[in-house]
Design a protein around this nucleic acid. Structure first.
Lengths: 332, 332
DNA sequence: ACGCGGGTCGCAAGCGCTTGCAAGTGCAGT
DNA sequence: ACTGCACTTGCAAGCGCTTGCGACCCGCGT
């Protein structure tokens, strides 16, 4: 008897126990498909993500997954992979009926994608800025970037470069942060009375290679900054590599601050803005669980705080001084 | 008519088209739960993994996921998280009826866990060494470690340290490689006519912090090695950090080689053993798909080749020379 | 023109579970 | 001892899909 196994009221305690004992004896396990059909619920939440192979998404998946599993639900993982994969998932009815809710991690949803998600008829929450019709968890990227910049400004830096994220046409990348972080950079620089210089803003793809390329452009440009704000730690890592190869010492010759607090930021002593991605994932999952529990409710927006983590990649600018020999280019 | 939509033979072409057109018009999408109940297949493969938040598993999930999705199946992600989560998944019938097959990534399965998986009655494949009853994809860790060691030996190193993985009681860690890599280290050292010294073998948890701790012990031990083999890149990163802080230059004063070819190995110029984790994930998925297509078949073992990637963290040992000033401890 | 057979079509019987409901049980009140 | 009520129990009707099978249609051969 189904009611006994599921602890539904309306069954005498004795009967319940008898039934459970019998079930255990035979090794009976209720068939999931049957109950899904009968109830219409799948007990599953879909997580849609560009790829699981990048740090940010790994963190977010782990955070969200823990909360979802804690609620007794399963997680169905959809990695978009590339544009074709993205198309496939959204265009066909790839998600229909497979999950009770969906969690979209850091994707710039197009209008039609938003519409398709709505037509699914299940709660949707997004990580990052998204359509107003969905719950979302955000980080104040602009403010966070500004705080990083103020740190550099307070140290006395007057020529500060930007390494920004240029998503280009890459579907595996995130959403709005790129712009917001650039805006934070500009706001802080301007309000410190310094002028904005396009040569000091170098955008590239969000990766170590992109960061390296951007830094290369900065240190070979018309004005050499004494400090650089990188929009992601991965880009900062690439930038550090270039600096090391070029014999430019950090932080003596150049300060650098990143964004993320990636696991390896501590390993390379990178000052960075900590955005707790794990917590963001958890918050997003909680939002979607709340929507599931209370279907009528209006979409909510949760905000996760950031904080600046100061390590040893930032220091006051060195006043005109002769450059030491770069004896250590190969040092790690 | 179900047969028309699914392109099952036995339906006239004209009828099929008519049905499809009508379905499209009404926006009809077949109910997944219904078909699952009727067919007994879920169209889903479960991936069991300690956590999605680490590089290795992110890569493996992405690799396996791409193949699974390519076959038109969904992936259900189970992260163990901790011992309790592991217990929960295996002990209760957490997986029963939810997936047509399961892929276990890098877990040392206990006897009872193996038995429970077998009782699921679905194909199981594992990434890493596992029970003979399951298909598996492996890497020859010992040979790979030996090749790394031979590289150091050929460079002329005669005192080579080991930073090894000590899983301790951590469930979120992997399987057999720790031992195999240590064995490779010992085999190569011995066969080069050098003697093994317990002080040169430092085990710690597989993380940057663990690598740092192990390296600290090595450079403060009774014999100072001129080269070190680290069993994972993450440990090597931590080790590099310690060396930099200590003013020990790489590779001038100390060579170091890692294992993994982690995304950031290139960024820190780390010589390392590339084990194509993405390919391992793909291979594991293919194994499980094959088992699904051909239920009777005996378990297979696929082997993924490794290769040594030489970067700038290894060089011949410097013969007795005076140590330069460590002016650059803060450099990045 | 009639019969036959290959090819289609549509009905209906499940798949295993949930749940409303009628029947049944036991106990307290009269 | 009988009636009434609250609580249990077990039955049966779906949930939406797949699939075996009988009914049917049409065109061919005789």
């Amino acid at each position: 008897m189904s009611r006994a196994l599921r602890d539904v009221p309306g069954v005498a305690l004795r009967t319940r126990e008898r039934v459970k004992a019998a079930a255990a004896e035979v090794g009976y396990v209720s068939n999931v498909s049957g109950s899904r059909l009968a109830t219409g619920k799948t007990g599953t939440i879909a997580i849609v993500v560009p790829t699981a192979a990048r740090w940010f998404f790994g963190q977010a998946i782990a955070g969200a997954g823990a909360v979802i599993r804690g609620a007794g639900l399963d997680v169905l993982l959809y990695e978009l992979g590339d544009a074709a994969g993205r198309q496939r998932l959204f265009a066909e009815h790839g998600l229909r009926g497979r999950a009770d809710a969906v969690l979209v991690l850091s994707l710039n949803l197009s209008g039609s994608e938003t519409r398709l998600l709505q037509q699914l008829g299940v709660p949707v929450a997004v990580l990052g800025v998204g359509p107003a019709s969905f719950s979302s968890v955000v980080v104040n990227d602009q403010l966070a970037a500004e705080s990083a910049l103020r740190h550099l400004i307070n140290l006395g830096h007057e020529v500060i470069g930007l390494i920004g994220i240029d998503n280009g046409s890459d579907v595996t990348s995130g959403s709005v942060p790129p712009i917001a972080r650039v805006a934070g950079y500009r706001a802080a620089v301007s309000s410190a009375g310094m002028s904005l210089d396009p040569d000091l803003e170098q955008l590239d793809e969000n990766s170590a290679a992109g960061g390296a390329a951007a830094m290369t452009r900065l240190i070979s440009g018309p004005v050499m900054p004494t400090a650089v704000f990188a929009s992601s730690d991965e880009m900062a890592f690439g930038a550090l590599h270039v600096l090391r190869s070029a014999g430019i010492r950090v932080p003596a010759d150049m300060s650098i601050v990143g964004f993320d607090n990636h696991d390896f930021a501590a390993v390379v002593d990178l000052t960075t803005v900590d955005q707790n991605v794990l917590a963001q994932g958890q918050a997003a999952a909680r939002l979607v669980l709340a929507a599931l529990a209370n279907p009528g409710a209006a979409p909510t927006t949760a905000s996760v705080p950031t904080r600046l983590v100061i390590r040893r990649s930032t220091a006051p600018p060195q006043p005109l001084r002769r450059r030491l020999e770069a004896t250590d280019t190969t040092q790690n």
